[in-house]
Design a protein around this nucleic acid. Structure first.
Lengths: 340, 340
DNA sequence: GCGCCATGTGGAACCGGTTTCATACCGGGG
DNA sequence: CCCCGGTATGAAACCGGTTCCACATGGCGC
């Protein structure tokens, strides 16, 4: 690997001049610049990013911490981050935390040692928030989930609102007994979605019935089990909304096995709009989150901050979720139908 | 950020001794080591990976080039790479090439400048192979697809064999008119799978009928369109096998819309075993590729090579695909059924 | 008592860039 | 003619580690 000194020798100038010629900084005469460029090309010179990072004190590298890239919700976020980063000449280091606070902490430390300039964090534990608050982490943008008390930029979706719209939609179709498959307890996201569901019921003057609210864990199996419970209730719901799509698919499976048709016998609504939502039969009504945009925006906010183009105040971007109506919730219930 | 010289001053020793104490290299007395460790902890010293990389001439960073992390086939590979890398203290830079040769080339150059130690490459174009052959790239392991003529380690799956097994299975169930939805032309993977299909037919003494082979492009839409064609043939197939799952799901949709039941009226088999394959109804029979293992193995081979623990010969690992029988291809056709 | 080797430590060079500072030349204004 | 500011370039310091080499000490074998 030729170094800048090799190029300097070949072009008959000093390393300083080569640096200036290649970076377009400082004064260099056109002829000298050309000699340098030629020499560099002839030798196949590639400047060492490491050496440059050492003196510039910036690596133009972002860390991306996701729970599990294998979960269909995250790839689009990752893609958004990567696209925005690549456009700006940054690279992205991918880390899977499995939602484990220890892994999360280890990775943050790991990335800090490697001097990534900033972190896009989908944080599963409050510990990550504390680390950031203590300043034991590079600049951070939280995406999707925000640990309490962290003073940092955040990009989130209005989960409560999204679920409110989804439940309203079912109410407008005439459903009155609407089941809810909740997310993992302790997840802020899950709680916001539950709150949206409850708020919609409240608007419609329906008292929430705890039997209709089944615990879940964001997995297909969890949704399936929860739905088995809901569907065996004496007064079974005419519609079920799940806190995410994977569980909604589980609900569909349970319904199918119970001999129920979707949407005629049971309307189903999910949340996230993962790729498979529109591919299953019937296509799933769900709440689309602008995942790609979230990732892209997060990366942009982060890079703005890193390059000093952001004020001292932490910024909070709340994106809107969008109800995507597909066939799994069908048309309005017949007047005087099963609804109470 | 405290530097090694700060620690040296605080511990009353030289930077060289601090380095030795922290890395456990060379001679350091137990007492001195302890003093250094204490000083480092007190100052919150984190060694600069950049400075270290500069002198060690290794960044312990791997580049991972995938066409699109948003495609459900790739996250598991990425996860495998990342897990293996993390275990060995390496980090992984994620890049999406969109299968575009220009992007691919740009990214390889980009990662080269950043001195990643090695590349895990899911290469969509022969150009990447040429780059590697010319030595204009860091050490590479090709995964899933191998550009012709590249002398490098590769991890692949026996696509021909996988598709052979899948088609054999349908033949064993009594199917004789088996449609095939092909992959993108020019894709080696697609061609191998087609070859497997043809070989199975050959074994069974069935002459391939070009009407039964529909062109596809690995997308849901492509599979859907292809199936519409196949299902409107005068002597429509009793089974369809698609070169990947996304297209198989498209086939299912087309069948459903044509009023055909799966598997009673049409057996469907896919390829890849993406996460949604087992979640749809009916669950899809498909050929599972050990994607996670591919990624993990690729990363391990690469790191072995980087650390000089591999011989000069390029290694070629061929993993076996595994037929996963689910409900979408049902039981044996009734004797004397529709088969010719 | 001498020489040798193992142990422990510091000075300084080095990795490959960037940047500051000093120097030198040139043309124009006073 | 002199001084000044803009242009052009090189020497050297620097970024923050690692490592080579020199040197000092102490114990042991002969």
């Amino acid at each position: 690997m030729p170094t800048i000194r090799d190029v300097a020798r070949a072009a008959g100038v000093s390393p300083a001049t080569v640096s200036r010629a290649l970076n377009g900084s400082g004064y260099v005469s056109p002829e000298t610049r050309q000699r340098v460029l030629d020499a560099a090309a002839r030798l196949g010179f590639t400047p060492s990013y490491i050496a440059r990072s050492l003196v510039r004190k910036a690596t133009r590298t972002l860390g991306l911490l996701v729970p599990d890239i294998t979960n269909p919700y995250f790839p689009a976020i990752a893609r958004g981050v990567e696209d925005a980063a690549a456009r700006a000449g940054y690279s992205v280091v991918l880390c899977n935390t499995d939602g484990d606070p220890d892994h999360e902490e280890d990775y943050i430390q790991f990335l800090r040692e490697r001097q990534v300039d900033g972190l896009v964090l989908i944080a599963s534990s409050p510990r990550a928030g504390e680390l950031v608050a203590r300043g034991d982490a590079p600049p951070v943008v939280f995406v999707d989930r925000v640990p309490p008390g962290a003073r940092a930029d955040v990009v989130v979706v209005d989960n409560r609102r999204g679920m409110l719209e989804a439940t309203r939609h079912l109410l407008a179709l005439g459903h009155r007994r609407i089941g809810f498959v909740a997310g993992r307890v302790g997840s802020g996201t899950a709680e916001e979605r539950l709150a949206g569901y409850l708020a919609a019921l409240g608007e419609a003057g329906i008292a929430p019935d705890s039997h209709y609210i089944a615990p879940g864990d964001f997995t297909f199996q969890g949704g399936y089990q929860a739905a088995r419970g809901l569907l065996s209730l004496p007064d079974r719901p005419t519609a079920v909304v799940a806190a995410n799509d994977l569980m909604a698919v589980g609900v569909c499976r349970a319904a199918l096995e119970a001999g129920l048709r979707i949407p005629q016998d049971l309307a189903v609504v999910g949340y996230d709009d993962i790729p498979m939502a529109e591919l299953i039969h019937p296509p799933l009504t769900t709440v689309a989150q602008p995942t790609y945009q979230m990732g892209e925006l997060a990366a942009r906010l982060l890079m703005e901050r890193l390059e000093g183009r952001a004020g001292p105040e932490p910024r909070r971007v709340v994106l809107e979720a969008r109800l995507v109506v597909r066939e799994s919730c069908g048309a309005a219930l017949a007047a005087g139908g099963r609804g109470g």
